[in-house]
Simulated scan of single mutants.
Amino acid sequence: MMLPNTASGLATLVAVLAIANPAHALLRFGCAQLVVQRLDPLVNPGEIPSAHLHQIIGGNSFNETMTPVEHDLPSLSTCTTCQFSEDFSNYWTAVLFFRARNGTYKRVPQVPNLGFEGTRGGMTVYYMQDALFDYGQASKVTAFKPGFRMLVGDASFRSRQQTQKFRQLTYTCLQERSTRSPETLGFPTKPCPAGIMANIRFPTCWDGVNLDSPTHQAHVSYPAEGTFESGGACPDTHPVRIPQLMYETVWDTSGFNDPELWPPANSSEGQPFVWSMGDRTGYATHGDYMFGWKGDALQRAMDDPCYVNCPTLKTQTIEEQNKCSVPDIVQEDIDGWLTELPGIANSKMTMPMHE
């Protein structure tokens, strides 16, 4: 997605496209932080705590189990941290840390994307019908069904070759907050003036039957040929086109840009950032999703000609989003300077591999 590289240019683009006459819908909205804790009801259901730390957004029925038969997110949630108040889905990713030269760790703060100032951390979420970040969203897509869930990425990956199994799990080194290119598969290797944006894009084809699978990945697929961006057709095994779900998380790394804080130039340690599962390459980035839109709200939005802000959906203020939260049931220290990552011993740290 190519956006103008100035804040005013981005605002102008959004304003112009918002009054255009799109064929169908592209949703782009902010979600505040719900909680940061070691829970993962998709990969480690019932475990307290889970293996590594996550940052979670969405409906406040989020907990450690969330079995699809018993846990209906829209009916069990009483609030959501997302702009569209009919979206009680849960979205989560790993958490980014800075590793100092003395081996201690500090959690990197999250900041809202442009246009969502005032949001408490969190992420920006997209539901797209076509790859273009404009009003040309002409394709028909089938919204996710109740109980649908999926995972993209692999927390164990540590090489560039491995990560190419997934398309476009990338990073943007922000020269300013509106920067959108270039994108890299691994962590940026130089300080980024305005932070690091982590971009998570999910597969866009579904088998049309299974709401989940043992790997949380086999029931979805990438296009058979080409890519979502090039309009590639879905494979026969996964014939149903679903929206392109995308997360953008802005990690404010600017407070760690002093060269004296980074590993020495001749060091094998490379850059100083590390995911909460112990990955210093960036290749282990991943995203989890549990669908929880109320009724047919998402399908209506995908069928209606709305762009970014959708008048067919109910919205709430940023102040209301920020009020929604859940208790931290793990209750461990994740702030300040830590001697090790929560749940991850120093001995398990992985050295970086460069682009």
Rank of each mutant, 00 (worst) to 15 (best):
M2N: 14
L10G: 05
L10M: 14
A11Y: 08
V16G: 02
A18P: 00
I19Y: 02
H24E: 14
C31W: 13
C31M: 09
L34D: 13
N44K: 14
P68N: 08
H71K: 11
P74S: 04
P74T: 13
L76R: 15
T78K: 04
T81H: 08
T93W: 13
G103E: 06
K106W: 01
V108Q: 05
P109K: 11
Q110V: 10
E117N: 05
E117W: 00
V125I: 13
M128G: 07
A131W: 09
K140N: 07
A143P: 00
L151V: 13
V152S: 03
G153F: 00
D154E: 08
R158K: 14
R158V: 07
L169W: 04
T170P: 02
S181M: 09
F202H: 03
W206H: 13
T215C: 06
H216P: 00
A218S: 13
H219M: 03
Y222K: 01
G226L: 09
T227G: 06
P235E: 03
P235K: 08
D236E: 11
L245M: 07
Y247G: 05
E248M: 07
W251H: 10
E260L: 14
M277V: 09
D279H: 04
G292H: 06
D296Q: 15
D303H: 04
V308Y: 11
P311I: 11
P311L: 08
Q316L: 03
I318Y: 02
K323A: 14
V330W: 05
I334Y: 00
I334Q: 03
G336P: 05
W337L: 08
W337S: 11
G343Y: 03
